[in-house]
Design a protein around this nucleic acid. Structure first.
Lengths: 340, 340
DNA sequence: ATTAGCACTCGGTTAGATCGAGTGCTAACA
DNA sequence: TGTTAGCACTCGATCTAACCGAGTGCTAAT
């Protein structure tokens, strides 16, 4: 068990290290006003904390740096939430004043606010498209052989795709088909579209429509949801000014990870609800061993959850980020649900 | 005027420099099989080329590097288009085999192909949204007070936004309004929507609809096109492995430029049609003085043009990029217009 | 007109030398 | 017994000087 003084020193050290990014020595800790024991005493305590695995040295005679265990302990037991200045609060609220024309824009702005105020990178995941339910489907003809198929979900998300129909399909058939789809597929979750198509729709179509075969393949293609992930980034380059990424190779591999698909999987693997922090190697994903991930969720309607995430160096300003991410996820949820 | 031998040497030197990224010396030029004069002769010629401004030295006793004038001459007079291997051709065509559900996806894939095969960064600009004409407008109700307004253009582009209507507006009014809009605004370019709204629509609405004031502000908001630029990137991090960007500061400023809005303006300032190359300082945009920009256009329908661009270091494999960008812009146009 | 030879330039690399921030340990102290 | 001053030691970071090699321009010979 840690003594009070050890807790105190651990907290001080992490706080110092977070701002300086340099190993912290006993002397610099002793400089704090509220520390009234000598560097030598501090050295003894730090040596103990190191032995217990909360601290590390970068080389034999360097100052101390928090280990992952140290960060973990810090976020679990020593994290005191921080208040934002009125100024900052005002600026954040201000960003949400304007009218958002598309939902996407609202999410994008949230990402931007988050990355700007944390100075790290923000990642937003839209709610699972496949879980959404079909609200309405519609075909707008562009010309004789092409049209745009529009799929609206219960959350207000809109998918669209250009389709071209062979001449063998007549105009009145098309209308009939769209009506059938709307009738049979209303409130069906998108992931079920294909199977419903094969089962219920197929038989109805066969009875009512000419050139059944082609219509079916056309529908099958059109009702496939190709890329079920909506992902938004902001502030990717913020990471580059962090001192831990002054090495070009690290930059490249980090950016590659950020731009890759695996990061999505990593984010999806976070526990479903509430705020979570994963530090360094706690992330399964290779390439972000030196980063921490803080995530929480926002909601669209009553059931659909999206993810808000901040990725920064392990040496992250945890209290501030926790406060901010919590705040914007609430603002986002609010705005999404009483959008006017 | 340049002698044949000088032309030949300039071409050789640029080609060498493009692959090596190191100042080229007389000895290494002399090593080429088809060069049958000595380093000393080459030195004399290079000194002349330098005096004429086509070449530069990085320091007093270094090899030569093409100047911007040198590159300009090279692309204008010495650029011999390069053939792609069957293998590569196959791979590119293969990328266009799959079904594209949304137009966006097609553009995104094109960007990806381009960045992967050039190893530089690809930027795509969608056709000017504001130039598109309204094809159809529709409101899908989500619940009692909210709906999704969907705007389809003649090119098949779909804009959508969530709107919430006050209770004072009745359901049959809404239907009436949408009908009026479709009637009066069909084939009106999007940039005219606002003015048409104020002139023609206003009077009709005032006559037919309750709570005219609120409806008008609602419509005004909904029919604003907020962010008229569609922009897609691919391969931003490709630039980082270029030897000219081994410096972290350069990386940061380059990425900031790429992520900023000004790059769009720079791209829009390129001549309207055909293939164009801007080298280094020929770009007005600060921060890409060491880069070259190659652009061309693609078309959607008969009139709408989008931009395909590749940005790379001045020391770019011009022949290869020219071939590739030309090829993908054609493939993109093809696929957009006979999309099936 | 071309080329071999040579003195010279200059960036990049290597090897010490030096500095300073930090430690652990020991011994003295409250 | 817990705290602290003192000291020898470690090690990264910075600076300097030496050196190497790729390259040039110029001169003189072919």
């Amino acid at each position: 068990m840690l003594t009070d003084r050890q807790l105190f020193l651990l907290q001080l050290l992490v706080n110092d290290y977070v701002v300086s990014a340099e190993p912290v020595g006993s002397r610099s800790i002793a400089k704090h006003d509220d520390v009234n024991f000598s560097p030598a005493t501090i050295r003894n305590e730090l040596a103990d904390l190191e032995e217990m695995g909360y601290l590390e040295k970068t080389h034999l005679s360097s100052g101390r740096v928090p280990s992952e265990k140290g960060y973990r302990f810090y976020v679990d037991h020593l994290l005191s939430p921080v208040l934002l200045s009125d100024d900052e609060m005002g600026n954040i609220r201000y960003a949400y004043q304007k009218k958002f024309s598309e939902t996407e824009e609202l999410i994008r702005v949230t990402a931007q606010v988050l990355s700007e105020f944390t100075n790290y990178t923000a990642i937003m995941l839209g709610p699972e498209l496949l879980e959404m339910k079909l609200k309405h489907i519609q075909l707008v003809k562009l010309n004789e052989t092409q049209g745009v198929l529009i799929i609206v979900t219960d959350t207000g998300h809109v998918e669209n795709r250009v389709v071209s129909f062979p001449e063998s399909i007549k105009a009145d058939d098309i209308e009939k088909i769209v009506n059938i789809l709307n009738d049979k597929l209303k409130m069906v979750p998108l992931y079920q579209l294909q199977s419903r198509l094969n089962v219920e729709i197929a038989s109805v179509l066969r009875a009512h429509v000419r050139d059944y075969e082609r219509v079916m393949t056309l529908l099958k293609d059109s009702l496939t949801i190709n890329d079920p992930e909506q992902i938004f980034y902001s502030g990717k380059s913020n990471m580059l000014s962090q001192p831990e990424f002054q090495d070009v190779d690290k930059i490249i591999s980090l950016l590659n990870v950020l731009e890759g698909k695996e990061i999505v999987r990593e984010l999806m693997s976070m526990p479903a609800k509430g705020l979570h922090i994963r530090i360094g190697r706690e992330n399964k994903l290779n390439g972000i061993e030196d980063c921490s991930l803080i995530t929480t969720t926002y909601s669209v309607g009553s059931e659909h959850l999206g993810t808000v995430a901040v990725i920064g160096p392990k040496r992250m300003a945890y209290p501030r980020v926790v406060t901010l991410i919590d705040m914007v996820s609430k603002l986002l949820t609010e705005n999404l649900n009483k959008q006017e």
